[in-house]
Design a binder for these strands. Structure first.
Lengths: 175, 175
DNA sequence: CTGGCATAAGTGACAAATCGACTAGGAGAT
DNA sequence: ATCTCCTAGTCGATTTGTCACTTATGCCAG
């Protein structure tokens, strides 16, 4: 359901193949969602079945034909309806916090190591997001579309930074 | 898979029925995970099948018998193994950021309203978490188990606060 | 000139998670 | 009377997530 909308959103920016979409999910969209390519192809087929997208085969030399998916009018309506729909309940899903919650039986040193491992992971992610943010042009100040896209990256960065601060504070006061 | 571990973690704190577990998922654990009762009962049955938990029927007056689930030694080992296992890749999953990312076609006022709706939701969540945090005793300073549980709530609070700050900053600079 | 990697575009099958509706009954409060 | 709480589930459909397998060319290193 949600993947349907995300893919529609991407197709609304430009026609794409499953391969193109996968690249987006691994880069530009990766700070708020992840999708496997099997999921992408499956959803794409469903979109076409439901008339929200159409396929156009674009021949290429030396490479397999591109199966370009284009959003339809119905697809645009569906996307608009999603954007305007009520916000779903916000269900946190943080496997790392879960580990910490249940880590009461671990030795102090083990807990410290767990927090350290997570910190390294978060730090790497932060560096990645900041590099992406640095690559953004200055269109993001004036153009609303570019601004909103940049804002989501900023949101991702703030989340990671908050987590790192939390990890440090948790480590410092650990009894 | 992950639910298996979370339920094992809760059973490790005290024997519980499916109903008890549901209450925990709706309160103490709700800032990092959510589970539906159908999932809980299904997982409980699976734990018993796999020998990670046992059931004891505790008769009650005026109420249905409690089907108390107790963690077994194998269950404790499984829980320990999970706590020590490598961290999985950290896949962000933020449907709200997704909306913002694709909101480029919306009117400025609509975007503002979208951000406002989210802010109200986050604010309510923050109030809820802060109330829970205030109810925590002072054991959380000395006792490691209590400390770690309190720390996860603190983590939840920091996440929500970071989001509210992001929403405000995004609103202020919206072109 | 062969083997491996990248590009390109998928398919298939299964496991796990999610969601919503339905069933069943007594106790106590408004 | 009706509503909520406590207790315990079940059923079925849809959605997600994971992993392995396929086909074919271009290009580079050894």
């Amino acid at each position: 359901m949600i993947l349907t909308r995300l893919i529609l959103g991407l197709l609304n920016l430009a026609p794409m193949t499953g391969y193109d979409l996968k690249k987006h999910f691994d880069s530009s969209v990766n700070h708020f969602w992840h999708a496997d390519k099997a999921q992408i192809y499956r959803t794409l087929a469903q979109l076409v079945r439901d008339g929200l997208a159409t396929v156009r085969t674009v021949p290429q030399e030396n490479y397999p034909d591109r199966q370009e998916h284009h959003i339809t009018e119905a697809g645009r309506r569906e996307l608009g309806a999603w954007l305007a729909s009520p916000l779903g309940p916000d269900r946190a899903r943080e496997p790392f916090l879960a580990r910490v919650f249940f880590a009461g039986d671990m030795e102090r040193a083990e807990v410290l190591e767990l927090l350290e491992r997570r910190r390294a992971q978060a730090q790497a992610q932060l560096a990645e997001f900041e590099a992406m943010h640095a690559d953004l042009g200055d269109a993001a100040v004036r153009d609303r579309r570019a601004y909103l896209m940049a804002a989501t990256l900023d949101g991702g960065i703030r989340h990671v930074r908050a987590e790192i601060e939390w990890l440090d504070s948790t480590r410092e006061n650990l009894p």
